[in-house]
Design a protein around this nucleic acid. Sequence first.
DNA 1: TTTGTTTTTTGCAAAATTGCGAACAATAAA
DNA 2: TTTATTGTTCGCAATTTTGCAAAAAACAAA
Lengths: 109, 109
Amino acid sequence: MEKDTTLASRQEQLARFAKALGHPTRVAIMCFLAQQTSCYFGDIHEELPIAKATVSQHLKELKEAGLIQGEVETPKVKYCINRENWEKARSLFGEFFGQCLCKSGACCG
Amino acid sequence: MEKDTTLASRQEQLARFAKALGHPTRVAIMCFLAQQTSCYFGDIHEELPIAKATVSQHLKELKEAGLIQGEVETPKVKYCINRENWEKARSLFGEFFGQCLCKSGACCG
DNA sequence: TTTGTTTTTTGCAAAATTGCGAACAATAAA
DNA sequence: TTTATTGTTCGCAATTTTGCAAAAAACAAA
């Protein structure tokens, strides 16, 4: 089973990542995770002015998008960026913004 | 009135852009606009397997996020990327993915 | 076993998103 | 004026998202 790298599938993957980043709280979580060595649930919750159930929900979405991963260290849970997928996202966004710079002089004006 | 460049406001702006890009159809529209010299509504609609009302709705959201702009050329409407905001988005995503590369050796593992 | 700690899940309500057909708006052409 | 052309808006339904409190899960410690 080969990896699907068609334009459509890359666009879908980009949209999936973008959707996960489409909420300020989730962007804040990603930035926080990127700058911390310890990243337990409680640390993340402490940073945010929202209920822990809500934090958990946002973490779940980031996890399902593949941007982060969680590791149980009973009774805590340590969260971190999923480096492999993070790199994939970086690459897709890079390609997206690269090709969309109107090289051909397209666009209005 | 100064421009707000706090971390929180940049995160919010990034989330707004990301949210607009959080749907495969809208990503496809952006890619299409970036590669065309003519970009009338009809051309965009032709590319997509969805009703024109739906296309119009997606264009409206991209416009409200500031990523594109429309210009009436009766009876058509010409759409194009909003270069200024596009550059702003590119910069924000660049910063985001740049700082989140785990420079400090943070993250698990 | 009971208690305590940490996080997830559940249940609920409000709001937003998605998609479509039909109706409408704006203008040019016949 | 009537007719065509091109897009937008409206009204509707189905689904998803967002946020929270309360309950549940998982396990260590007393």
